[in-house]
Design a protein around this nucleic acid. Structure first.
Length: 321
DNA sequence: TATGCGTGGGC
DNA sequence: TGCCCAAGCAT
């Protein structure tokens, strides 16, 4: 659930636990099935890392989970926070787990006004966390601070009256009754406009699907062949850019689906448009393969395709006749 | 060190 | 509509 709300991830967690109840089962699963189960949750490298990690633990480590943060850090997808959280909570290692909640709690308590995404602010924060961690109950301490941040010391309008730290909290003292200024972040992610063209290549019964390469957006997920390029305007002559060569047959109007719509990512504003092409079963169209529509629905798809799938399919089947 | 990586909720 | 943020990590 890295960078993901518990509310958003909990249903997925139950689904994973039911389907793959232990590390061996997850290790032996097909990656495509894991990705399909992850569909819609985002940050899909986490699914690949989880599967990879399960294999390392099940086979390389003979099913023995690491028991300290240093070893956990060698597992793919496990960074400083996750290693510290697991090791302190499961094995009572005395190491602070610093997530977004903890950053907010400590930066407010200390009144840190230097940006917490810079070395100075970060160092100040880490130093305090190291001193603060309870040697007796490191796991409980870490969970308590995280819960404090999640339930009381919230990003907006924290409930300072309910906070056990309010007496000494510099941020509360300096800005009573308001949303505290810390944490200060410098690096704001810029949202860039990109144009995303999906090329829906169909025959009477099949559609050409490809798996997206790693690294990059939606790596490992499936899609209609696509182009992503900078900008926000759909150029009139886009069809001359794609496909680059025959054997492309003809372009068919998708009607309303031809109108671009917006799909938002944290760092991109995508202007999405579908293009429908009539293909031939005897031809290939680059990476990918001919797929039955109902089989394609079993593949892991990015949200933008999950949402538009029915409209695209219906329109394609209608137009192709 | 800076950037890429998804999606959804709240305001 | 726009912005912030969420049990961060890899490169």
């Amino acid at each position: 659930m890295q960078q993901t709300r518990i509310d958003q991830g909990t249903a997925y967690w139950h689904k994973f636990k039911d389907r793959w109840p232990n590390i061996q089962a997850l290790a032996e699963a097909d990656l495509s099935d894991v990705l399909k189960a992850w569909q819609g949750l985002g940050y899909y490298s986490r699914a690949r890392n989880l599967h990879h990690a399960a294999n390392i633990i099940a086979f390389d480590l003979d099913g023995a989970f690491p028991e300290n943060a240093e070893t956990w850090r060698t597992i793919p997808g496990v960074g400083p926070y996750t290693a510290a959280a697991i090791s302190s909570i499961c094995f009572e290692e005395v190491i602070p787990a610093v997530d977004g909640n903890v950053i907010r709690v400590i930066s407010r308590f200390l009144g840190i006004h230097s940006p917490i995404d810079r070395p100075e602010g970060r160092q100040e924060l880490e130093a305090f966390a190291e001193n603060w961690i309870s040697p007796q109950y490191p796991g409980d301490h870490n969970q308590a601070v995280m819960e404090l941040g999640a339930l009381v010391c919230t990003p907006r309008k924290p409930d300072c009256g309910a906070c056990p730290l309010n007496e000494a909290c510099l941020s509360r003292i300096n800005t009573p009754g308001e949303t505290p200024e810390p944490p200060i972040k410098l690096g704001k992610t810029t949202v860039r406009d990109v144009v995303l063209d999906f090329h829906v290549i169909v025959t009477d019964h099949k559609v050409w699907m490809r798996q997206r390469p790693a690294p990059g957006i939606w790596a490992g997920l499936f899609e209609f062949p696509s182009n992503i390029h900078p900008g926000e305007r759909i150029e009139r002559d886009r069809r001359t850019h794609f496909p680059p060569e025959p054997p492309w047959k003809s372009l068919i109007s998708l009607g309303a689906l031809g109108d671009p719509f917006h799909h938002l990512l944290s760092h991109r504003k995508m202007h999405v448009q579908f293009w429908l092409w009539k293909g031939s079963l005897s031809q290939g169209y680059g990476e990918g393969e001919w797929t039955d529509w109902n089989c394609a629905e079993e593949l892991a798809l990015p949200r933008v395709l999950e949402r538009s799938w029915k409209d695209v399919k219906n329109s394609a089947l209608l137009q192709i006749r």
